[in-house]
Amino acid sequence: MSLLTVEHLTIRFGGLVAVDDVSFAAADRKITAIIGPNGAGKTTVFNCLTGFYKPDVGRMMLSKDGQEWLLERMEGFRISQQAGVARTFQNIRLFPKMTVLENLLVAQHNVLQAASGFSIAGLLGLNSYRTAERAAIELARHWLDRVGMVHLANDEAGSLPYGAQRRLEIARAMCTGPRLLCLDEPAAGLNPAESAALAALVRRIRDEDGVAILLIEHDMSVVMEISDRIVVLDHGRKIAEGTPDQVRDDPEVIRAYLGAAEDEVAS
């Protein structure tokens, strides 16, 4: 049963067709990778899924436990709030002046906001809110533990080393309690040891937390190692889809990548 079904997704910017009639599905509790050369439209697909762009054509449906959400019809922030799609960003977007813990608490805004009775119970310091806040801090601690950053909890997020910032962004996305986690190049800029740790982290999220993962990644060792299924985009079109082994040997995919490599050499 697929959690996310994308059908005929098309996005144009002026004359440029950034994503052209792409359809794919992502299964629940599986890791689906979207790969492709630079400019293939991967991040654009993410931006559509998370409501930053509205598609010109197409349908994006999330379904779980008998509930359905049509993402293209939802306002940006509701996609995370109601459908439970969380994401990270290619160029990390933390709240740099806030502490690590605060970053994780902001992610639990909607739960806490309801518990604080739209601030009134919170202002009065009622017990119900205090309990909720303690629970939120516990959840934050749990995720800090998972990404190995408990000792950094009170540090300013902007002052962390790069790798820690990447992990914090994943922890923050997980604190929203998502059904689908979209990771946009989580291994970019990491050293091999960090990449391996990241792969393990993502795999554990799939296996232990029961969350489906959509992954954009350039690091093929990570992609081939952890993905259950791979979708290959090139120039906005889907050129292949399948298991890592199928995709690896697909002539179309090899051509796209080699062609891209030649372009890069030429320029």
Partner: peptide, 30 residues
């Protein structure tokens, strides 16, 4: 009031919004 609000979800969301509005939206904050 302000000091109190800062420690509540809304207050944290204010600061988060100042830091990065796009990230806020991605976290389901209106």
């Amino acid at each position: 009031f302000t000091l109190r609000m800062r420690r509540l979800p809304v207050g944290r969301a204010w600061e988060a919004l100042r830091e990065d509005e796009i990230a806020c939206r991605a976290l389901g904050i209106n």
